[in-house]
Design a binder for these strands. Structure first.
Length: 893
RNA sequence: GGGAGUAUAGCUCAGCUGGUUCAGAGCGCCUGCCUUACAAGCAGGAGGUCACUGGUUCGAUCCCUGUUACUCCCACCA
């Protein structure tokens, strides 16, 4: 059969993915096997695939495919996240483009639009994952707002409320004036921004003196209810007990003294606005100050804003400064750089705001979650993230779980007025709430449900449990089988949002950890080290990359530069390496599939009837080498060093198999190969494909299939094509291997390299047959059973041990052995001499350093015997080598 | 301001309990080759004061002190 010399991934990848789907090879049901469960970090339902997803999901797929081939029941559950703020923002924008204002819609209408949007654009990202080769169990695809997950969330809310862990309270929250919702501390990004520091004059009541207060936010003076100085600040001791007038506002407020104030900053005097600054709020609580809220939810001034009512906060800042300037109340203005909180989702400047929100108590949950990571019940890879984790959990604050949005799980709390008092009922649904209202309060009127929805993470923290319906049915077969999951693969930036909280949920609702290992991926950056972002436009479209290099190529490119926890500077060029590798294997397949076997119909060759010894050795050696590398690979996987495992496999296939093994056994053009070697080669090649399959699923399936079909009848081939998959094969395991044989090969390889080197420097054709002889008394450096292979690969007619140096030969050394290649033409004595003298100089320097060590009294008495023995061996070898070199130089000269 | 991490070849990184797996890998680079599987290839080669400084030790890329540079996380300095 004719095979193209270039591998074309496109058709092949599509074919096999469909095949895997048709055969339901990704699907998992509980059975007798050991489970291996991975839950996908659910991407935003309306998101599109970016490089971070590519990395993350490639790693998951590698682990899942490997586990599957190790005979485990691998289950990788996909799904998407409803992403409250992000999705609602997108829908609002979409509606606005159609000329529809969200505020003109009822909640129900808005949600209808949102669901439509979700149906239309949702899940694109999951389709994209298929192109990557992700072996997810698509039958299990979930959504954080589907029926099971929705009910789970509501149930959990009820449960925690009944346990007294959820409460409602008025707190200072991070308010996003654009999205009109509270956001959690973790969703606030502090950015450096250039602003001004304004120095304002606060006159003392009834006196002509004033003190100067520095502020970055003069617009909040309408909410000032005190001025604070340090109690030990002598500059201000005269102010004790006095009151000052807020400039421009005229309100008289007290001077308070508290050590909170930093005397070095500004003027050492601080204005206190309890409603609009978290610290001021705390001080306000401490001193019983009035709290005056001056902002509307959208960041404009409210009725407390005096003449600035309705003005935006930033416009107000300008206006108010102009007015104060004119009134002579401004001392000076300085440029100032500080960090300002921005909303992660909308980028709006966060406004600290007092509001009624729902909170989840963290103390008890955090304690357990910390414990299981501290004692390595859950292992982090790399472990350095334990520090970050610990620090957060030890300083954790209660989790604000309510959001002022519509898209999400609506808080299952209903309010009713009883005797002028508002009572709260938390229930599974309105019907139940009514029952409670009737029973508890004898109330049958209308109930008002809380308007807010829950923080998105309040559903994702249940993900490993809710995916198997373990909240609603804690004893069902699936949750009992699949939970706890094995490995979680995610980016470190959601360690608090998600990882910590999943651990809490696991402990709280299953009394068990949610996963055994957390593998932190790096952040994908461009080759200049910048984060990939839409703004910079430096993020390649993963789908384009797959088109260009094949999914296998891209997967390999990502993995090669992605050690756990390290950021990876992504360079498209590295996908090329992956593509080239596919092509290399493809061509190895072309070679092997073109071989004719002795004894097969139509092939007659008496000489080749038996397996040549060199082929026997080649097969044996390749088996040893594979066993050795498999051991390495297993070790790498244990430590989650995927890039190293891949590199080891890459070198095994390319260097050992293609460059060495195939060259060893390759028959001369037009001649057949013996049956035993042929079968062994197919077998070895097939097992290499198994090893590589988790990393490069498509090309390995294609090659493996072709190999299985080789030499079979059309009918058999058909059967294999339709009924077998590399995915069902068992991953090769490490076995005992003969280290001595591997060492012997190293010598053989050096001989071959030595001869090739001579050809290269002397410009000799590879076709010119040479001879090799050598002198040694050290068995380590004899050619041994690799002689036939050396003859073939170095193209020499004989390799023989001699006792005398041949004349007119070029030489090289392997260890202490001298190897010679006799030359028919004259040898360039000058060049030879120069090379030998350089070698001699190096060897003598080496010997000197060894002798120095050995003559050191303290070394000999202090170092372990084994180390000293090694040094003595070094000495002996070096001496032998020097003697040989000297003799050669003499012979030449 | 607090904490963590990193520094090894031109680039990206390995280097486990200090001593020939100790100076490594891949890519890149240089030289020569279209050698009947593959130029997306083959063969060969060059490249490093292991950031700097002291110390511990018979011996330090590795352990300790300090310095410098970069990265990340956390935090309420108006």
């Amino acid at each position: 059969m004719e095979i193209a010399s270039k591998y074309d991934p496109r058709a092949i990848e599509e074919k096999w993915y469909q095949f895997w789907l048709d055969k339901k090879l990704f699907h998992s049901e509980p059975d007798h096997r050991v489970p291996y469960t991975v839950v996908i970090p659910p991407p935003n339902v309306t998101g599109v695939l970016h490089m971070g997803h590519m990395l993350n999901n490639t790693i998951q797929d590698v682990l899942v495919r490997r586990a599957r081939m190790q005979g485990k029941n691998a289950c990788w559950v996909p799904g998407t996240d409803h992403a409250s703020i992000a999705t609602e923002a997108k829908v609002v924008k979409m509606l606005a483009e159609k000329g529809i204002d969200k505020r003109s819609l009822t909640r129900e209408d808005f949600l209808k639009h949102a669901w439509e949007w979700k149906e239309q654009y949702g899940g694109i990202i999951l389709k994209q994952l298929r192109k990557l080769g992700a072996s997810c169990d698509w039958d299990r695809t979930a959504f954080t707002m589907d029926d099971i997950r929705y009910e789970s969330v509501i149930r959990v809310f009820n449960d925690l409320y009944n346990k007294g862990l959820i409460y409602r309270g008025v707190r200072m929250v991070n308010w996003d004036p654009q999205a009109l919702t509270a956001v959690s501390d973790e969703e606030v990004i502090y950015k450096e921004s250039h602003g001004k520091l304004f120095y304002l004059r606060y006159y003392v009541e009834g006196e002509d003196k004033y003190i100067v207060v520095a502020t970055t936010r003069p617009e909040t003076i309408m909410g000032d209810t005190a001025v604070c100085v340090h109690p030990e600040d002598e500059r201000y001791s005269w102010l004790k007990g006095k009151r000052v007038i807020v400039p421009g506002v005229g309100r008289v407020v007290p001077i308070i003294m508290d050590e909170y104030v930093d005397r070095e900053f500004g003027t050492g005097a601080l204005k206190i606005t309890p409603a609009h600054d978290i610290n001021d709020y705390n001080l306000g609580m401490k001193y019983g100050l009035e709290s005056i809220d001056i902002f509307n939810d959208n960041g404009t001034l409210n009725d407390n804003g005096g003449k600035y009512v309705g003005m935006d906060r930033f416009a107000c800042r300008k206006a108010i400064m102009k007015d104060l300037e004119e009134a002579g109340l401004v001392e000076k203005t300085e440029d100032y750089t500080n960090k300002v909180g921005h909303s992660e989702r909308t980028d709006a400047v966060i406004e600290p705001k007092l509001s009624a929100q729902w909170f989840l108590k963290m103390e008890g949950l955090a304690k357990k979650a910390l414990e299981v990571v501290e004692n390595d019940t859950i292992r982090f890879h790399p472990a350095k993230f334990k520090n970050t984790y610990r620090h957060w959990l030890e300083n954790i604050k209660d989790w604000c779980i309510s959001r002022q949005l519509w898209w999400g799980h609506r808080i299952p709390a209903w309010y009713l007025d009883v005797n002028g008092k508002v009572e709260t009922i938390v229930a599974m649904n309105e019907e139940e709430a009514r029952k409670v209202a009737a029973e508890k309060y004898g109330y049958t009127g209308a109930l008002r449900q809380d308007e807010d929805v829950l923080d998105t993470w309040f559903s994702s923290w249940l993900w490993p449990i809710s995916l198997f319906d373990g909240i609603r049915h804690p004893d069902n077969e699936e949750i009992k089988y699949y939970y706890p999951t094995a490995d979680l693969i995610t980016a470190p930036d959601i360690i608090f949002f998600w990882i910590a909280r999943m651990i809490m949920a696991g402990e709280e609702f299953r009394d068990e950890i949610p996963f055994h290992n957390v593998y932190f991926t790096g952040i994908v950056r461009d080759k200049l080290g910048r984060k990939m972002s839409k703004q910079l436009g430096n993020s390649p479209d993963p789908i384009d990359l797959i088109e260009k290099y094949g999914a296998d190529g891209v997967r390999m490119g990502m993995l090669l530069t992605a050690p756990a926890g390290n950021d990876l500077p992504f360079d498209e060029a590295i996908c090329e390496q992956g593509r080239n590798f596919s092509n290399k294997m493809w061509n190895a397949l072309r070679l092997v599939s073109g071989w004719q076997v002795t004894g097969d119909c139509g092939v007659q060759s008496a000489e080749m009837a038996e397996t040549p010894n060199s082929n026997d050795v080649a097969v044996q050696w390749m088996e040893q080498r594979m066993a050795q590398v498999i051991e390495e690979i297993e070790h790498d996987f244990e430590q989650y060093r995927l890039s190293e495992a891949l590199m080891a496999t890459y070198k095994l296939v390319w260097d050992d198999f293609c460059s060495w093994y195939l060259e060893m056994v390759k028959p001369a053009y037009g001649t057949p190969i013996d049956r035993a070697t042929y079968d062994a080669t197919i077998n070895i090649f097939s097992r290499l494909m198994l090893l590589l399959h988790p990393f490069m699923p498509f090309v390995t399936e294609e090659i493996w299939h072709t190999l299985q079909g080789i030499g079979k009848s059309d009918e058999q081939q058909q059967f294999i094509a339709q009924n077998y998959s590399i995915m069902n094969q068992h991953m090769p395991q490490s076995v005992f291997y003969d280290q001595r044989m591997l060492d012997e090969f190293d010598t053989a390889r050096e001989v071959i390299a030595g001869v090739r080197n001579i050809r290269n420097t002397r410009n000799l054709s590879p076709k010119e047959v040479l001879e090799v002889s050598y002198i040694t008394n050290d068995d380590r450096y004899r050619v041994g059973r690799f002689e036939g292979i050396i003859r073939k690969l170095a193209n020499v007619s004989k390799v023989e041990a001699v006792s005398e140096k041949p004349t007119g030969a070029l030489s090289f050394m392997i260890g202490t052995a001298e190897y010679f290649v006799p030359m028919s033409q004259n040898v360039d004595k000058e060049a030879e001499l120069k090379k030998l003298q350089e070698d001699l100089k190096y060897a003598e320097g080496f010997l000197a350093s060894v002798l120095k060590k050995l003559s050191n009294e303290k070394f000999v008495s202090g170092a372990p015997a084994a180390v000293i023995e090694k040094e003595r061996n070094k000495q002996r070898d070096a001496e032998t080598k020097i003697a040989a070199l000297k003799a050669q130089i003499e012979a030449l000269g």
